[in-house]
Every structure is written in structure tokens, then in C-alpha cells.
Amino acid sequence: MNPDDLQKNIKWGTIVVLAVIAILFSVLDRSNNLGRFFDFVRNPLTAVSSITTSSIDPVADIANAPLTLSSARAEIEELQARVDTLERENEELHEIESAFNLLQSLFNRASQAPNIERVMANVIGRDPSAVVQSIIIDRGKGDEVQVGMPVEAARGLVGQMFRTTNDAGQIVLISDTASSIPVRLGSSRATGLLRGGGQGVPMIVDWIDLKYRLEVGEVVLTSGLGGKFPEDIVVGRVSEVDRNEAKLFQRAFVQPAVDFSALEMVFVIINFESVDSDIFTDPSVR
């Protein structure tokens, strides 16, 4: 064999061997028989790769910084705009939710006592005076609202119509110092007279017999006595009991059920016929 033929044979032999090895590796790897071998090789490679990458990354970051920064800024602006939109949508949904809750509570209240006919009214103003407690509503004589009609809200009693014009009315709140309403306590069944305390002063149920054991948290309801208010309208809850055995009567401080400062809508009860009790108090009315 001449040397040229020998070289040619070695060249082709190498190619064939390498091809066979490659195919063999492929087959073996495909059948998962080369894992250990390649792990032996891969482990140091990945370790080196990791070190290299970690040392290259800062450099690459610096190199790509202007491009990345500008795209990041653009992305932040885009995301900020989306956040703003979502926040606005969230606020709108909260508003819808609170309006829904309010209407639902009003509906629940109306369905609890279907025999009572009510006119719904919006609160449009508040009394600027410091000595009296009243609110102004957008219903008046034109809506069958008359002086003396009881007024309630979703959570409980609000007051009584004090003055009406054709399109508006003024309600004296139960927290006003001039207000006095006969009430009954829910669990003890004690009766008494609820008096308003004025601005920032708690309401008090007075003239409660000592034989009753009052409890803090007891519900206070209208008793219907006196004929000015329908019975069983929630007024509030007992927050404190003032009991002294040396006295003839005890009294209870009441936390109103209605937040008068946050009132937006009220119901005027228009089909309640109050009893005229003036005949018992005013001798001229006979």
C-alpha cells in the first residue's frame, strides 16, 4: 500500500469512527444510558458557565443599559397608566358597591314593614345652628309630606317632620334637645322617655323603673305610646346604664342606630296617623 492510499484510508476511517461514535452516543443517550457519563462532563462545564455568566452579567448590563433603561421607563409608564386606570375603576366599583349597599338596606327596611307607606327623600342640607339638630330633605307638601310625620332611615328612627314647604321639608332629629320619644327596651321590656342630648351629647332614656335590670347593648325601640311614632322602630342601643338604688328611677345612655352626620336618604312615613293627645295637656282644647 502506498503512503497516499494509507492516509486516505486513515482519513475515511476517522470519519466513519466518529460518525459511528456519534450515532452510538445518540442511541445511548436516547435510551438514557449516558447520564452518568455526561453528568461527569456537564458538572464542571455548568460550574464554569455559571462563574462566567455571573462575571459577564454586570458588564452586559452596563453595555445594554441605555436600551434597557429606556425600555424599562417606557414599561413603567405603561404599567403606571394601567395602575391609574385600574385604581379609577376600583374607586368607581367601590362607589357602586356603597350605593348598592345603601339601596339594599333601604329595600330590606321597606320589606320588613310592608304595611307602612313611605316616601323616600334625599338629605339636601343640615342645620347650621349649634343649639338645634335638624336636616333638610327634598320632599314637601307636594309629595304628601306633612308636619309631624315620623321619619326613619335604613338603620332606624331619624326624627319627625318639623316644617314643610312645597318641595322641601325640615326634620327635627331625635338627638335634638327638644325631642322626647316614648321607647321600650328590647330584652328587659322596660319603658321610658328618650331625650335628645344635642350636638355631641348622648341621648338618654329617662324614667325607667328600678325593677328592670338593664343591659348594655340592649336594643331601644319606639314603644308607640303617645301616638306620635309607630311602635318597634329601632332607635339605638344602650351604651351605659346609670342605676342608683337611692333614686326612684334609673336611666340609660343610648347610642343612636343612625349616623346623623352621614345621612343621605331617609323615609318619611306618610300613612301613620298620629294620635292627637293635646286634649290631655292643653285645657283650652276641649
Binding site: 345652628s129 349649634a130 343649639v131 338645634v132 334637645t177 344635642g198 350636638q199 351629647v201
Partner: peptide, 17 residues
Amino acid sequence: TYQITARLLGYPLILQT
């Protein structure tokens, strides 16, 4: 003035003011 006048007219004194 408001509190004094109101008191003279029979309203209670509102200390909260």
C-alpha cells in the same frame, strides 16, 4: 352671643360649641 341668646329663649346651653 348665640349661646346666650338661645339660653334666654329657653334652649339648653350646648357646651360642645
